[in-house]
Simulated assay, not measured.
Amino acid sequence: MRSIQLGDKTFELSITSTEIQKAIYRMADEMDRDLKDKNPLMICILNGSFMFAADVMKKFTTPCQVSFVKLASYQGTQTTGQVKELIGLTEDIVGRTVVLLEDIVDTGVTIDNLVKQLNGMGPREVKVATLLFKPDACKRDVTLDYVGLSIPNEFIVGYGLDYNGYGRNLPDIYSLVK
Rank of each mutant, 00 (worst) to 15 (best):
M42F: 11
D32R: 10
F60M: 02
Y159M: 07
M57H: 06
V94S: 14
M51W: 01
E125W: 13
S73F: 11
E85S: 05
S175F: 03
P152V: 06
K59Y: 00
K127N: 12
K59V: 13
D172C: 07
V98Q: 06
V147S: 04
C138V: 08
L114M: 14
K9V: 12
N113H: 12
T97G: 09
L144W: 00
Y25G: 10
S150L: 03
T130S: 15
Q65H: 08
L149S: 10
T16V: 14
M57S: 12
N39M: 08
Y25E: 13
S17H: 15
Q117L: 00
Q117R: 13
Y146D: 12
S73R: 11
L170I: 14
F133L: 12
L86S: 04
I4T: 02
T10S: 08
K9E: 14
S17G: 15
C64Q: 01
R2V: 11
I45P: 02
R33L: 08
D136W: 00
P123C: 11
S14R: 05
M57W: 11
V157M: 07
D106Q: 04
T90K: 14
G148P: 11
V142L: 07
L131D: 04
T10P: 00
D112F: 14
G165M: 01
G7L: 06
I156C: 04
V98P: 07
A72L: 08
G88W: 00
P40I: 15
D8N: 09
L118V: 01
K70E: 00
N169C: 10
K22T: 15
I87H: 08
N47H: 09
I93S: 09
